[in-house]
Amino acid sequence: MAVISISNVVKKYKDFVALNGVNLEIKQGECLGLLGPNGAGKTTLIRMITGSSPLTEGEVSVGGMDIKTSERQIKALIGIVPQLDNLDPDLNVIGNLLTFSRYFNIPHKEAKKRSTEVLQLVGLENRPKSNLGELSGGMKRRLMIARGLINRPRILILDEPTVGLDPQAKHLVWHKLRELRNSGVTLVLCTQVMEEAAELADRVAIMDKGSIICLAPPAELVVQNVGRTVWEIEPEDGHREPIIKALEQRRVEFDEGPGKITTYHVNDADAFKGLAIATGKLKQRPATLEDVFLKLTGRALIE
């Protein structure tokens, strides 16, 4: 059953089209990964779901309610961990949670109980009295997650939750998110970290230039788009053009990245027989979600 349903959503900022007819159904209890390069429209799409930004066209419903008419009720159901830190720096750790509870109209006693609970969940139970200035980046992120859970949301939306975290903190956050998903919370996870999506998401939607260009479980996306293995060729000076010509003749699917040619759907080295590739300059490795991402959104740098 779809808990969030997005149909034909268009969002324009003045003349700029940030979302160009997005359709997406997010199922109850799943973790949906939303991938896309900078400026693809991930944050904008989230803002449509949470009523932080009006739709130009189309419809969004959450838990069967229309965002246009039931904004408040929808916001009460959702937890949000935004991309930018907007914790309240005038309040300490526990103050942030208690104050946030009040916005949801949670009675004080209950709020205290829940605050302790969520701090424990994110491993900050020893820091309730800390000022925000004393927290590391990773602790602040975890506090944002704790804050996003204070209303016991059925849906938790996270916008790049592990940006800037060290590996330990990142794995801790992933672990917490997995626990949440296992407890039945629907997760919408915006990210640019492919590993994160591969680890956590049941399905992945890749966005580019305001549209969703594909949607499937991560393993399927990999097999369908690039095959199980990719080969990387590092051509020597002057050999690049002939290699590319030969690959085109042999109908091998490939992409040109900086310094490298990456081929898709190639199963064995026979495909490269007779090409002027120096020894050690042809490598095989298992395909990843990152290859899909780069293939679909382009290997060139996007500004």
């Binding site: 932080s52 408040r72 916001k75 935004p82 907007n86 309240d88 916005y103």
Partner: peptide, 14 residues
């Protein structure tokens, strides 16, 4: 600077 308003309007407070 603090984006406190943004944080609040993501809750049932408009």
């Amino acid at each position: 600077y603090q984006r406190t308003f943004d944080a609040i309007i993501a809750t049932p407070v408009n």
